[in-house]
């Protein structure tokens, strides 16, 4: 751990109707894995929301993040700020909104 490493925290609401289902999870993990920083995600809307690894698709599915839930994305490492911003933006924009994501 160097002194340059910092933790960033962003909170974002799930905007899309289908919630954080498989395809958005894959997009999230794919993006998170491009950063060196550790990524921890919590669904703060659920009581006792557990901390999961934002780079693990299986763990991300445990968040059960339905539309309207708030995710706390905490990043820690050399590119923490860029990671937190990019991931928050992905969630905010509804994961690029697939045309069929409502019916999937």
């Amino acid at each position: 751990m160097s002194d340059a490493e910092t933790t960033y925290v962003r909170e974002v609401e799930i905007p899309n109707k289908a919630g954080l289902h498989a395809r958005p999870v894959m997009q999230f993990v794919d993006l998170a894995s491009r950063f060196k920083s550790q990524v921890v995600v919590i669904n703060v809307t659920r009581a006792g929301g557990e901390r999961v690894d934002g780079k693990s698709a299986m763990q991300m599915m445990l968040l059960e993040a339905t539309k309207g839930c708030t995710l706390r994305i905490a990043t820690d490492g050399p590119d923490a700020q860029a990671a937190a911003d990019a991931l928050a933006e992905l969630v905010c924009h509804g994961f690029g909104v697939h045309p069929e994501s409502a019916s999937e």
Partner: peptide
């Protein structure tokens, strides 16, 4: 949608 996510949570 919500039941589907709950089921996925259970599976994973």
């Amino acid at each position: 949608q919500d039941d589907h996510l709950a089921a996925m949570e259970k599976v994973f």
